[in-house]
Design a protein around this nucleic acid. Structure first.
Length: 564
DNA sequence: GCCGTTTTCGGCCCGACTGTTTTCAGTCG
């Protein structure tokens, strides 16, 4: 409905915003909306949902339809609305195309372009038509967002090039990348430099070898498309004394910024990327640092990972902010695979690699697969016995008890585990995971696994693969409750396409008191660095050190395990 | 259509770049 109203134009612009806000609220609900929909008053309490939208939600749940929406569809070319996603195509352009040329969908638009009909329209010059053509093509090709890990690699490599450009004083990744969102649409870089070096920096940036196309290049900002994945990179050039306000603005999220700007407005100020100003006198009050910007508004500095307008500002006004967990707090990796199952390296190679490159670690847990995972060469009970002996031998040669005996045991469809209880007791750490039956509700299986006396942790709890496979359905409230009652931890699996448990659910889990573990689930030596990604997810879920089990010594991990 | 520690009415973030026109509308972030 928001898209419909957006199409209808300026007259409906505030209604559009209202519907978009309501949609965002609905999207971020942890429970199904029907939980709130017993009456209008209950729904009305949700942010951005008032009486009118509440009634429509209830109407939809009761009848499967919304009358207003049915009416809207008669006045709006519905198939055309998708094209608002195309770069450069907004409501006004689409409206003209529909009203002047009778274009109702994408195919008709392509045809009209081929026939040269667009040039007959007022305001449609040669360049505009060219841009529409190109954007349509690009829209078809891309549409996929980058995984955070991939975006970090690309972002850091471009940042490196930018830092080499003459005249650049500071350059930093901003945007959703700085917030460590799980997928990234484009890469934002903020640059400080002197006024007179701007022109040359823009020129040098837009002619980097990685650039395939320039979208825009002005006096203070530029946008390009990279050859790599068609990734868009935006840079913004500011003065040194605008660094704080610009970084704040360019980091977002958009919703977080709007909230801050409204707070400023209430005080008779305004915020832009240039600073915090008196609205009337235009006198500058702040801008040098992010910290200063927040302080002026009576807030502590809010870490970028929390800036999602999910209650962080309200929280910061009343409580101290959580001291978010950091990579340096991590004392060990809780899940990894060796050549015994589907890993690429022997346990000894892994142990020596980690001791060398991750000196802060006090332990690692080898968690090879159990027998059901045939493709992954799951181990039979007697093989685990042999593995125990090997681990003992390796620890002896290392001179310390560094390698821990663990397993990633399969949760079968009936909720039982595929290793005998007697053997499970002998592991120091048992993570239980689902590897089959993705298309059904798996709550019961997970609850049953939590109840097993030997299970310490649930691995990649939702089973999702970002952009490839939806997670299976889980009643998270029930799972979190059971996890607390049984003393079972829940994993953040740091594989780039898993990041599972995801940030919002991590937040929900720790608020209830669930203990989190972060593990790389590494299958080769290049994957231990994923720990950084797992910590990012934990931070986005507001985790402090105390919420994450593997920030503790092994002795304390065992204390947690013994409470099962 | 939503919202309220000045407000139940009158607001709703703020600025840059492009293209087309010649002062601005549309779009984007």
């Amino acid at each position: 409905m928001a898209a419909c109203y957006r199409y209808l134009g300026a007259e409906e612009r505030f209604r559009t915003i209202a519907y978009e806000n309501a949609a965002r609220t609905m999207d971020s609900l942890k429970e199904d909306v029907s939980v709130y929909a017993d009456n209008v008053k209950h729904l009305d309490q949700l942010k951005g949902i008032g009486e009118s939208i509440a009634e429509k939600i209830i109407e939809y749940l009761k009848t499967g339809k919304i009358n207003t929406f049915e009416q809207l569809q008669k006045n709006v070319p519905m198939e055309l609305l998708d094209l608002m996603e195309v770069n450069g195509m907004g409501p006004s352009t689409l409206k003209t195309l529909h009203e002047e040329l009778g274009i109702d969908n994408r195919d008709e638009l392509v045809l009209a372009i081929e026939k040269g009909k667009l040039s007959t329209l007022k305001g449609f010059g040669e360049k505009k038509i060219d841009n529409i053509k190109r954007a349509l093509k690009l829209y078809k090709e891309s549409g996929t967002r980058l995984l955070l890990w991939d975006a970090l690699q690309i972002g850091e490599s471009v940042l490196n090039e930018v830092l080499k450009i003459k005249g650049v004083i500071h350059a930093e990744l901003a945007g959703s990348l700085r917030r460590r969102k799980e997928t990234i649409g484009d890469i934002d870089i903020i640059i400080t430099c002197s006024l007179k070096s701007r022109k040359l920096i823009i020129k040098n940036f837009t002619s980097l070898t990685q650039v395939s196309r320039i979208i825009a290049a002005g006096d203070t900002k530029a946008s390009v498309v990279l050859k790599d994945h068609n990734t868009q990179v935006d840079i913004r050039l500011v003065d040194e004394n605008e660094y704080g306000s610009a970084l704040l603005y360019f980091t977002g999220s958009k919703e977080h910024n709007i909230h801050l700007r409204l707070m400023a407005k209430d005080k008779g100020w305004k915020i832009s990327e240039y600073g915090l100003f008196h609205a009337k006198t235009e006198r500058k009050l702040e801008g040098n640092t992010e910290d200063g910007m927040y302080k002026a508004l009576g807030l502590p500095w809010i870490p970028p990972e929390m800036r999602e307008e999910k209650g962080e500002i309200e929280w910061a006004m009343k409580h101290p902010l959580p001291k978010l967990v950091e990579l340096k707090d991590i004392k060990g990796d809780m899940q990894m695979h060796s050549t015994w199952s589907d890993g690429a390296e022997s346990i000894e190679t892994i142990a020596r690699h980690i001791l060398k490159y991750f000196p802060q670690y006090e332990y690692i847990v080898i968690t090879d697969h159990s027998p059901t995972e045939r493709i992954a060469h799951g181990l039979k009970p007697e093989e685990f016995k042999k593995q125990f002996a090997e681990i003992d031998k390796i620890n002896k040669s290392l001179g310390k008890d560094f390698v821990k005996k663990g397993v990633e045991v399969d949760i079968l469809t009936d909720g039982s585990l595929d290793l005998p209880d007697a053997l499970l007791k002998e592991f120091e750490w048992v993570t239980a995971s689902i590897h089959s039956g993705f298309n059904k509700d798996n709550t019961v299986r997970l609850l049953q696994a939590c109840e097993h006396p030997s299970v310490h942790c649930i691995g990649h709890p939702s089973g999702r693969l970002i952009g490839k496979r939806e997670g299976y359905t889980v009643n998270w409230q029930q799972l979190f409750k059971k996890a607390i009652a049984t003393g079972t931890a829940i994993e953040i699996n740091a594989q780039p396409e898993r990041m599972d448990l995801k940030d919002d659910l991590v937040h929900e889990a720790i608020r209830k008191g669930v203990m989190i573990t972060i593990s790389t689930d590494a299958h080769n030596l290049n994957q231990y660095v994923f720990m950084k990604l797992g910590v990012d997810v934990a931070r986005r879920g507001w985790c402090e050190k105390v919420n994450v089990l593997n920030t503790k010594s092994w002795k304390e991990v065992m204390k947690f395990a013994s409470k099962k």
